[in-house]
């Protein structure tokens, strides 16, 4: 479904993607993990040509969307983007539209879907992500988790064949992460082809068909989650997983008991 061949990308002389190749099979979920700055978000954004890769090729549904720095012409690219749903870390809902308008606008504008039909479709999708009752409010009144679910519904309104998720839960309060991951899991279960950049290892373990580990712009390891997590072949992967575990432990460790300040005072105080 998504085929990335020998992709290279530099930002002002700094090479952030170095010869990355990757295939996402139809109806499968690929989760991309790796330390920050490893190029995983850039890789995902290249799949939508929000970033233009310098070299290499990306095919979506068998169709080449960019080859050696030359993307499809604008008009065709718009059609490809319409069928490639994208979910952003910062939601990027349109603040001047209500939730339901956010979802129904693009089908109307891009595909000429009649308003009533677009509205029905939007309500269906909002129901699907559990936001039906928020249809007529503005995004500013939604919680982070609700915003992200609305953003997912907005992407689904174009009936995409592929969904790209760029750290969809990284901007959320911890207690709101679950509701978004649940929606994503339901999508994966329905057979959506998904590519997910995330730090949620639980999600990767449970939902991913393939886990891809990136570091310093290279794809260092990929495989089924059981193998990558339990028996990583590469030292880079082990180091990354160890750092994650250490981070969790550091957060969970109880604070050392502070010394009793009063006890240090002289008796006559």
């Amino acid at each position: 479904m998504i085929e990335i061949r020998n992709l290279h990308k530099s930002f002002g002389g700094v090479e952030v993607l170095k010869d990355v190749s990757l295939t996402v099979a139809p109806s499968s979920t690929t989760v991309v993990i790796g330390p920050s700055g490893s190029g995983k978000s850039t890789l995902l954004r290249c799949c939508n040509c929000l970033e233009i890769a310098d070299r290499g090729e990306i095919l979506i549904g068998g169709r080449s969307i960019i080859k050696d720095g030359r993307p499809l012409p604008d008009r065709e690219m718009n059609a490809v983007r319409a069928e490639t749903g994208m979910v952003f870390q910062s939601f990027n809902l349109f603040p001047h539209m209500t939730t339901v308008e956010n979802v129904m606008r693009a089908p109307m504008v891009v595909r000429g879907t009649p308003k009533a039909e677009a509205h029905d479709l939007a309500l269906d999708l909002l129901r699907k992500v559990g936001l039906e009752e928020k249809a007529d409010v503005y995004p500013s009144t939604l919680s982070g988790g609700q915003k992200q679910r609305a953003a997912i519904a907005r992407a689904l309104a174009m009936r995409p064949t592929v969904m790209l998720f760029d750290e969809p839960t990284s901007a959320l309060d911890p207690e709101l992460v679950g509701e978004v991951l649940q929606v994503m899991k339901a999508l994966a279960d329905e057979g959506m082809t998904m590519m997910v950049v995330t730090h949620e290892m639980g999600f990767a373990r449970e939902v991913a068909d393939t886990v891809v580990v990136m570091a310093e712009g290279r794809l260092v390891e990929s495989g089924p989650p059981e193998r990558v997590f339990s028996a990583p072949a590469q030292e880079r992967t082990r180091a990354f997983l160890r750092a994650l575990v250490d981070g969790h432990l550091a957060g969970a460790r109880p604070l050392p008991t502070p010394p009793d300040a009063l006890a240090a005072l002289p008796d006559d105080h």
Binding site: N78, R81, S90, M158
Partner: peptide, 21 residues
């Protein structure tokens, strides 16, 4: 914010449509 244009384009809107909408 740049994310607004990106979100609009990612839905398949042209530059002109994204500007207008």
């Amino acid at each position: 914010e740049g994310g607004q244009m990106e979100a609009a384009r990612s839905l398949g809107m042209s530059y002109r449509q994204a500007m207008r909408e």
